[in-house]
Structure formats: structure tokens, C-alpha cells
Design a protein around this nucleic acid. Structure first.
Lengths: 197, 197, 197, 197
DNA sequence: CATGAATGAGCGTTCATTCAT
DNA sequence: CATGAATGAACGCTCATTCAT
């Protein structure tokens, strides 16, 4: 009667996978554990996903696509490059707060899992990286950003933001992610701006 | 006959471990592989280290202690906080370049390996983190750095530097780490300085 | 709407099963694969057959019964035992050529599949074996065949023929099964005949 | 103290494998069962053999090499091709009787296991097949064998012998393999000989 | 101290079979 | 009758760790 029933199970697998991947890492989260957490049999995971790696990357792909859409929606109307970056980063923070478990997984597994990093980047954050680089280029043309390498700038801001988020996810939550993020953005914008405001 | 033989073996294990952990990740580097690479028996690893995790953290601890000494030596005589930070970061870059394999391991395994992150930080970079925080505090007192959270600032600079180094380790080496690091330091210092220089 | 639909499906299952059993062996041919090849659901296989083994033996039984009828029809009118054997064997060759896939399955799975060999023989070739034995007995009574054990003779001819066919199925088809079969029959008949012709 | 101890375990694995492969087929003989039968842990199988398939082919290779040596030794001194064949076949029968379990495995798994038949032949009986073909050629040159295809003749004799042995292994042992084998050889030799003796 | 064969729990994955729809 | 998602026991195989030598 409920058409959503089958999807329901797939969704429960996805949720359980995100939870366990972030809590225990790629290797620590066994398929048996994921199945148990999702309340399904082990076998059904392999109906919906080719294998464990496919499960992992499916999560990544799906979520990241969704985020990119959000990203562009928010940034779209703004003209000033510095404002654009600010909006983009605060959007990122909001997404993190709304989808904590997923970002825990994403950041925790970005390296070290033994998974193909190129795939992680391809399905994951490469696009966001590229977008920030583009905005920096715009800012340089607009004359509001110093002549710096867009790639270096993008690397910087992702490093800053991710470490800040990581801190929050791991040790924090006793500080306001929003508050510290504003400080991070401030440091970055001052660091790249042509004139100090 | 040779008294140095056992130390020799331990060292060979350490070198092999660093090489394989960085190349294949914590899980990909099996103890059997490490023993083979080191040219020792599997069993002897467990004479020198309690278990695989202990081997990993021993590497971390030992190297990081060495780095901290280097760090303090270089920074020690400088008075100006901004210069101190600059020196600290460039020292970091030099250490990375001298000990690529180890940093590959450190950065690649910081997350995702399923290892206890608190332990990694404890034996690893927590100290460096604390040092940078201290310098930022000094800078604020000296009036050369804006009133910002030392923790946030430290988080930022480590994020920027590590992502920059990661890029270099993973995709790069076709760009100069030294050159991009200078840009990173520049962005950071401008971002936190009280007045633009 | 179409009354023949169910039979149709059963037949499609049978055809798919023969194809896949012969191509991939008993274990390689999964029920899921058979269902897909037949264009039916997995579940329906178990409406028509008790289980996978039952499916296998049903194929065997059905086909073999058909072959026995053919066999007797061809051999029926002949009086001379040696001629009878010759006809029987050439009939066998024609059946093989007409129904290659099935014999591929039969010969390939006669051993090694882990299936109960007694069952295979029971539903399969035991009858043919018995028939040849009978003809040999007749031949001995007629005085055209030496006093040999009918069972041994039957074993011989089936071994010769099957290995010849197996060669053809596996490696051959670049030689004429008909031509080599005639040589095989010739060797056998000379081997058992009372006087060389 | 006993240098043979490690080999002992490998040998116990080999014996258990031959026993179970022949009794239950390649798929029925699980590695767990083989380990249990051998009284060893599951893991150790994979110390000595790359994987299950390797275990199977190692058995084949080792034994078959040994048999080929025996074969040549026995046949070596004989000049007359017909006698050579007779000796070869009776040698085969003796080997079968001495090493029943192994031949049970060999014949049972020749087809149907889903294993690569070319490999089975390569490590297994291809060599014997070739040898018989050679002897037939000699016999034709000697003028004691009719002008027949050596390949067809070899196929015939292997088919006859194997089916006879199979009968004995499966149902028999209530008849003398030696006795029936002589009848088989007799039928074959008369079938291929130039003049009836 | 040193060895490496041995262990065995646990991994990801498969698949014949079932059953709610 | 028909479906195919769901099951779960069992598979081949791995690997950190142990221990007799």
C-alpha cells in the first residue's frame, strides 16, 4: 500500500551507513553492523549496492549533488565576489549543521580509508573546490581580491573550514560552529582582500 | 655479535612501517607486508611493539617529539609574533620536504583509518597546535595581531597548511610547495594582522 | 488471456536452464541468471520445480525419455545385432548434433557437479546403457559377437562415444563429429565382432 | 625434533582435499571441511596454497607428474606398439587401484566442477593422451595397427578405460577392475589391430 | 632474542529459497 | 498464478597475533 516501503529500506541502509562510517570509519563499519543498525538482513545491502565501496560512493555522490544545487542557489544572485565567498561558506556551515553525520563521514573518510581518493574527490568536493576558485578569479577581475592563485586560495579556505568543522565534530559542540566560522571567514577575506575594510 | 643489530631491526621496522602506512594506509599495510619490507620475521614486530596500533603511534610519537624540538629551536630567538608564525610555518614546510613519507602517513591517516583520533592528536599535532595558539596570544599582547580566538587562528593555519601539503603530496609535486606555502602564510598573516603592512 | 502462457514460461525456463547449465556448469548457473535469461521472475522457477536440483533432473528426465523413444524407433526393425548397434550409435550422434546444448550439459555435468550421480544415471543414461547391453546379448546369441560381458561392452561404447563427443563439444567443431564417430563405431564393432569382416 | 612436521601438515591437507574433492565434488568440499578433516585450521590452507583452486590443481599436477614417470618407466623397453598400449593401460589400472581416492577425484572433477578444463587437461591427462597417440602412430608404421586417426584411437581408449574405472569406483568394487580392464583392452586392441590374432 | 607456521574470529559477498503483495 | 525484495546461512579468504622451537 505504501509505495515508499522499498525505498524506506534503502534509506535505512543509507542512514545506518552514514552513521557507522562516520563513527567507526570505513573499515570499522562492517556490512554486518550496517545491516544490523538498519534492521535489515546483510544480503539486502547487495541488492541495492554493488558492494561496500559502491555503498560508500553512492552516499557521497547523492548528497554532494544535492549540496551543489543548494550552493549555486544561494550564491547565484550575488554579484560581489567577497560576498559570494562569504555566502558560500556560511551555506556550507548551515549544511554541515543540518547534516552533521554525513559531514562527519565525509571529513573522516576523506583520507586514510584506503579508498580511491580521486573517486572521493570526483563525487565529493572537487566541484566545490572548482567553484570557489572561479569566484576568486571573478574577485580578482572585479579588483576586490589581490592577485593570488585561485587554487591556493581555494585550498586555504577549504583547509580552514574543514579543520574548524572537524574540531567542532570531534571535540566541540561546546562552542558555536556558526560563531567560529564567521571568524574563519573573516580571517580569510581579510587575507585575500585588496584593501582592508 | 653486533650489539647494534636489534636496534637496527627496530629501525628497519619503523622505516618499513612509515613507507607502507603512507603508501597503502593503515589497513592496507599488513604486518606481514611490513615485516617483509623490513626483512624481518612477522613475530619480531610484536617484540618491539605491543600491537599494530602501538607500532603506528610509536612512529607518531617519536617523530613528533623530534619535530617539536626542531620547531622550538628555530622559533626560540625571534621576538615578533608574526615573524615567529612565519618561521614556524616555513620550518614545517622544510620538515615536510625532508620527511615526505612520514607526513604522507601522518596526513593520510589523520582521519579515516578508524584509529582513535584523540590519540593521534595527543601524540601528534596537539602540541604544535598549542604552540601556535601561544604565539597568537603573544601577538595580540604585542598589538600586532587582531583580537581573535587563538584556537580559531591555530585551526585555520593548520587547515590551510595541511591542505596545501596534502595537495602537493597527492596531486602535486608539479608545483613548488615552498612557493605556494609562502602564499598561504601571506594570506594567513594578512588575515590576522592588526594593520595591513 | 492466453492459456498457453504458463507452459510457455516453463519452457522458457527449461531452455534457459539447459543453456546456462551447459555454459556455466551447475553451480555457475544461478537461479537468478536462469530467471533473467528466461525473462521470468526468480520466484516462478520454484512454482514449476521443487528446487534447483529438481529443475536439473527434470530436464534430464524429459529429454532422455524423448531420446529413448527416438532410439527404439530407429533400432526397432533391424535384426542384425551389429547393425543395430551401429544404428543406435549413429542415432546418438544425430541427436547430439540436433541438441548440442543439452548434451553439453549432460556430459559436462555428469560428474563433478556434486549432484547425486545415481540420480543422474537413473534419469539419464541408465536406460540407454541397458539397451546396448541387451543388443550385445542378442549378438552373442546370434553368433556375430564374441562371448564378452555385455556390461563391459556397453561401458566401452559409451566411454568411447562420450569422450569423442566431449572432444567435439570442447575443442572441436573444427572436425566432423559424424566422421570421427564412424571411426569410433568401426573400432568398437571390430573389437567385439566374432570374425573380422 | 621431527623435520617432517610441517610437511606433515601440508600432506594432511592434501590427503583431506583428495578425499573430500572425490566424495563431495569441488564445490561440496569446502575449505572449512577440508581443514576439519585434516585436523588443521582453515587459515593454514592458504599458507600452503594460494587459494582453493590452487590447492586443487596442485594435487593434480603433483600426482600426474608422478604418474607420467611411472608410465614411461613401464612402457619404455617394449618395442611392439600393441604390447606397449596393453602395458600402458594395465599400468593405468594398477595406478588406479593403488591410488583410488585420487582417481575418484580426477574422474569426478574432470568435467562439471566449473574449473577451467584446459588447466585440468594441462596438468592432468593431456600428456597421457599425447603418449597414447604417439604409440598408435608407431603401431601404424610398424604395420600392426590399421590406418586410423591416432587422436580418435586415444580418445576411444581413454573413454573406455575411464568409464570402466568410473563404474568400478561408483557402483562396483563388487567386480574385479583388473578382470574387466583386460576385456576392455582386448576389445580395443582387436578394434585397432591390422589382423585379428 | 628470533622465527614463521599456525590460529580462528571475522570479513565482504553470494545465492537458493521464501513470502507478502 | 506472478513478482522480486528479502532472507541468512554459508562461502572463500584475510590477517593481527601467538608460541613452540
Amino acid at each position: 500500500m505504501n509505495v515508499k516501503d522499498p525505498t524506506d529500506k534503502k534509506e535505512r541502509i543509507i542512514d545506518a551507513a552514514i552513521k557507522l562510517f562516520s563513527e567507526k570509519g570505513y573499515h570499522g563499519a562492517t556490512t554486518a553492523l550496517i545491516a544490523k543498525e538498519a534492521g535489515v538482513s546483510q544480503g539486502i545491502i547487495f541488492h541495492h549496492f554493488k558492494n561496500k565501496e559502491d555503498l560508500f560512493f553512492s552516499l557521497l555522490k547523492e548528497k554532494c549533488n544535492f549540496f551543489m544545487v543548494e550552493f549555486r542557489k544561494k550564491v547565484g544572485n550575488e554579484q560581489n565576489a567577497l560576498r559570494k565567498i562569504e555566502i558560500a561558506l556560511l551555506t556550507y556551515v548551515h549544511l554541515v549543521q543540518k547534516d552533521k553525520k554525513f559531514f562527519e563521514m565525509l571529513i573522516m573518510q576523506t583520507t586514510g580509508s584506503g579508498l580511491d581518493l580521486e573517486k572521493i574527490n570526483k563525487y565529493g568536493m572537487m566541484e566545490a573546490f572548482r567553484i570557489i576558485g572561479e569566484i576568486v578569479k571573478e574577485g580578482i577581475q572585479q579588483g576586490v581580491i589581490r592577485k593570488i592563485s585561485p587554487e591556493v586560495a581555494a585550498t586555504c579556505i577549504f583547509g580552514m573550514m574543514d579543520y574548524n568543522v572537524m574540531n567542532w565534530l570531534l571535540f566541540g559542540e561546546n562552542f558555536s560552529l556558526e560563531e567560529t566560522s564567521k571568524q574563519v571567514v573573516d580571517i580569510f577575506l581579510r587575507g585575500i582582500a585588496k584593501t582592508t575594510i
